[in-house]
Amino acid sequence: MKYILNETPLKTTNNFRINNITVDLDIKETEFNEYNLSFKNDLDINTEIKTGFDSKIGLKTDKYLYLDITPKKDIKDVLIINYEFNNNSYLASNININLEHDLNTIIVFRSKTESFLNFKLSVNSKENINSNITLVNLTSDSSTNLVAIENSVNTNSNIITNYVDIKGKLRISNYYSDLYKEKSSSSFNTIYIGNNDERLDMNYYVKNNNKRTISNMLFQGALTDNSYKSLKGTIDFVEHVSKSKGEENENCILLSDTCKSRSLPMLLCHEEDVVGSHGMSSGKIDSEKLFYLMSKGISEEEAKRLIIKANFKIVLDNILDSSIKNEIEEIINERIK
């Protein structure tokens, strides 16, 4: 069946078909016995099966697995949540995190064969919260991943969200951050790699919704082969949000002459006293940097990896578990050729 997903917050010209993505999906019911859910550094986590799944991506489904996480004190260790698919499974799931205290989380998805993920992370913070949340997609090359992230950020709180989007044949992601109280801030960092015929559609939106709010978005990516990515990033300064700041940066390295990169960095502004900016650059890897590294004996492939991993550093440094970080680096090495 055809679905129209990932609608931009504000429609623009239809020429480049950037306003949404039309995809043909075969949606099955979630079979809850076909995947494993495991936790490291366990917390009091409620899981239940609910009905009526809906995320800003736009795909509604029926049954889904619901996890509720509410830390009762500041947690030092990183909470790791592993989703592991078995064969051919379809999974709809929503994690809801109520940040009454600081919490750092890594959520990892793994599958070995074709899998379909429809996932939503909802985060609500109280005042004075600092959290670092990372989502890592280590599903198979033939997987389809729909990942929606939503957060609403309270006074004086800062939520950093990292999304490692490096595998899967079709990847649709959506981020919505509502900075609804004064001095709230959020950072969203994505690293992505596209190989083969992989298709990525990203629709990220931050609303500076109160005074002295700060939004940051950073996208670092590399495309090879025939991969095709479409990135829509929006910063929205609504009315009465004086002294707010918003910044969006994108850098896309193109490693083949058949890959395609489409971007729409939107900057919407309805307030005088703000500072907003976006910067975008795309093109091949800097040839002078490449020459410098190669002249010191480093192979072209290795030099490209070094430069791309350096671009990815900000996200990699945010991954607070070294074994997951190593796993990611190895996949990057494999995928940058």
Binding site: Y292, I298, S299, I307
Partner: peptide, 24 residues
């Protein structure tokens, strides 16, 4: 030969203005 292959042969070149490579 590619620059790295030349380096591998045993030639080194110091740059007048070395490239700035953040993150490495």
């Amino acid at each position: 030969l590619k620059p790295n292959e030349i380096a591998k042969k045993g030639i080194f070149m110091s740059f007048q203005i070395p490239e700035v490579i953040p993150g490495v």
